[in-house]
């Protein structure tokens, strides 16, 4: 169901992008993107635990919210997302609650908090602003990122890149990957859930025979561009950013179909304390302005209806992400066990 509804929503977004500006604005308003001009002022004390994000752009958003709401006393604790999630659970077990909100860069950590029963329910009108398939009762996705196959355009055409992620294991393509990277491990967790442990282990062993490891996924994309490997596994924005800095880069994006290879993962936020203030703060992150800013500046995919996707992302209507509750990506341990068994960690 998720794949179908996502397709409908991205098709709508694609059609929207072609409309004249005036009509587009009015449609956007109907579809749910709310301007900060229509949001209530934020007043009072709020503590946010913030997982490390996109090189300071989340900070710019937070600073802008602060400036717009001078009566808001926003305290921020920063750290690695997983470490903050552990802290929240540990604080709860100790009978303490220091954070009112948790903004995480991955849904695995969100799942840890919702599974522990610590997240507050969200009002329907907030969730309904989000694209169908990204509506959850106790947390809200903020922006998305899609798994892609960056490929070297001097060596391959898009048609030569397998449309089935599982087929990469048996291909004769040289592959770049970053097994220690959190996004890769989330993608592999999705594969384990969708295809099963046996198939995932076999895939890992197959790919590792013709894969070269890199520390991070930007490194993977750059290696693809240099021609060090034919194809890689990486989130979409690395390639878009590389091409923004180097328009003639020898790299483009290919997508698999309806499998973990085109998983759409998200950053997300949840409220740990009751009341309007945490929820209204979340509304600012889902506002048309913040969504557009993160799309244009961080190349993240807006998940609120009516906001344009980042420049350079291919036809969104052609994407077919798998049907998966993103919170399940929190179950990382069996994935790491498989990676160790395959000798890639």
């Amino acid at each position: 169901m998720l794949r179908r509804t996502f397709l409908q929503s991205v098709a709508a977004a694609g059609a929207l992008a072609m409309m004249p500006m005036g009509i587009r604005s009015s449609f956007a308003a109907q579809a749910g993107a709310v301007s900060v001009k229509d949001l209530p002022a934020l007043e009072g004390d709020l503590t946010l635990y913030l997982g490390r994000g996109e090189g300071g752009l989340y900070e710019k958003v937070l600073e802008a919210i602060r400036q717009r709401n001078p009566k808001l006393n926003l305290q921020i604790r920063r750290g690695a997302t997983a470490a903050l999630a552990n802290t929240i659970v540990a604080e709860s077990q100790a009978g303490v609650r220091r954070a009112d909100l948790f903004w995480a860069v991955d849904t695995g950590s969100i799942g840890m908090i919702t599974d522990a029963g610590l997240a507050q329910p969200l009002p329907d009108d907030l969730s309904e602003q989000l694209k169908p398939g990204f509506r959850y009762p106790r947390w809200s996705p903020v922006t998305g990122r899609i798994r892609t196959l960056p490929y070297n355009t001097q060596r391959l055409t898009a048609e030569q890149v397998p449309g089935d992620i599982m087929a990469l294991a048996d291909s004769d393509l040289s592959i770049g990957w970053a097994p220690a990277y959190a996004s890769f491990q989330s993608f592999l967790t999705a594969m384990r859930i969708l295809e099963g442990e046996k198939a995932t282990l076999s895939w890992l062993k197959g790919v590792s025979r013709h894969a070269k490891s890199y520390a991070g996924e930007l490194g993977v994309v750059m290696a693809v561009e240099r021609g060090e490997v034919d194809v890689g596994f990486a989130n979409h924005y690395y390639t878009l950013r590389l091409k923004a800095g180097k328009p003639d880069a020898n790299v483009d994006l290919a997508y698999t179909k309806s499998d973990a290879g085109c998983l759409v993962n998200a950053s997300g936020i949840l409220a740990l304390s009751e009341g309007d203030l945490p929820v209204n703060f979340m509304r600012y992150l889902l506002s048309a302005e913040v969504q557009a800013y993160l799309s244009s500046e961080a190349y993240e995919i807006p998940l609120v209806n009516g906001v344009k996707a980042p420049q350079g992302l291919p036809d969104l209507a052609s994407l077919t992400p798998p049907d998966l509750d993103l919170r399940k990506l929190a179950d990382l341990r069996p994935t790491l066990n498989l990676m160790r068994e395959a000798g890639v960690l």
């Binding site: 994000g53 996109e54 090189g55 300071g56 520390a215 991070g216 930007l218 950013r241 590389l242 923004a244």
Partner: peptide, 10 residues
């Protein structure tokens, strides 16, 4: 790793 995305655009 947190800044290289922004830097690569430059």
């Amino acid at each position: 790793e947190g800044i290289e995305g922004a830097l690569i655009e430059q």
